[in-house]
């Protein structure tokens, strides 16, 4: 049972981590809680189902399932990336110099807007991931079941996190991102196009959330327009748990949160599942007021 709970926790934890990265990157640069980020994840999940429906309709799934899945991921990520950029352009860029709390309200307004936009466009019913794709099934390891989708979620998450770390640490744009997060005005003076860096940050955060959305739509098999809210709050909690603005912190926070939830629900009470996450957060913050990995031990982006 313990092993099974660890598997459950790691699966959902890697998804939280991917979403939390979006929060933490935007926060690192703009000091803004991007409240609409959960909705971007929801849009990613919808796009996954819409895209795979389209490819199945074209008959691509019969030719190569792997190719279909890869194309689905790419399509969903491009779209969520575009939504992220548009979100920044409409709701955040005009308010660059406004009080930060006003931007927060703008973000909340955007979140309400996106949720209802998807509800109107796609209907209030749950959308279902096609059952007849041959991606079901799984392995049994000593009484614990792990499905292929769970394995895929963990692998893709690790790949994406590694990719992001490489991008931020080693590439020129990554370096510019780090500079911008340290001091936006100074970075601007040094010739970095900070507006462009902000756009790239939103794009990266959104495609990670989009990938998380597609994986969740495969894992649970359903999506609905209100799923972004709860996941968004959990992921934000994860980002704060790890130390907001800190990329490894968001990964650690996300996976920890998933494990806490699974073990708490499994061994204590599933009624209080959502309480555990917050309770742990409060305890951590009392002892380490800026998260598990705060800025001093590692650089922030």
């Amino acid at each position: 049972m313990f092993l099974q709970q660890i598997i459950n926790g790691l699966t959902i934890g890697s998804v939280y981590a991917l979403i939390a990265l979006g929060y933490t990157m935007v926060y690192g640069i703009l000091q803004l809680i991007n409240f609409a980020h959960g909705e971007i994840y929801m849009i990613g999940a919808y796009m996954g189902i819409i895209a795979i429906g389209f490819f199945v309709y074209l008959g691509l799934a019969d030719i190569s399932l792997t190719l279909t899945l890869i194309l689905t991921f790419i399509a969903a990520m491009i779209f969520t990336g575009a939504y992220g950029i548009t979100l920044e352009r409409i709701a955040y860029r005009p308010m660059r110099n406004a009080p930060r709390l006003s931007i927060l309200i703008s973000a909340i307004g955007m979140s309400i807007f996106l949720q209802n936009y998807v509800m109107l466009a796609q209907g209030a019913k749950d959308k279902i991931f096609p059952h007849d794709l041959k991606i079901q099934g799984g392995l049994t390891i000593a009484d614990a079941h792990i499905t292929y989708i769970q394995i895929m979620i963990m692998l893709i998450s690790i790949l994406m996190m590694a990719g992001l770390t490489y991008f931020v640490k080693k590439t020129k744009i990554g370096m510019a991102m780090r500079a911008t997060s340290q001091d936006m005005r100074m970075a601007g003076l040094l010739g970095i196009n900070t507006d462009r860096i902000i756009v790239i940050t939103f794009f990266l955060g959104s495609i990670l959330a989009g990938a998380a959305g597609v994986m969740i739509s495969m894992y649970y098999g359903i999506v609905n327009f209100s799923m972004g809210y709860a996941a968004g709050i959990k992921a934000f909690t994860a980002a704060v748990l790890g130390g907001i603005g800190n990329i490894p912190g968001a990964m650690l926070g996300g996976i920890l949160l998933g494990l806490i939830e699974a073990l708490g629900a499994g061994y204590i009470s599933s009624e209080y599942k959502d309480v555990f996450a917050f309770a742990i957060l409060v305890i951590v913050l009392i002892f380490r007021p800026s998260g598990l990995l705060d800025e001093r031990v590692s650089e922030k982006v």
């Binding site: 049972m1 099974q4 459950n8 926790g9 939830e261 499994g266």
Partner: peptide
């Protein structure tokens, strides 16, 4: 996600 409680 109901897997934790279902595991129980």
């Amino acid at each position: 996600d109901f897997k934790p409680v279902l595991t129980k």
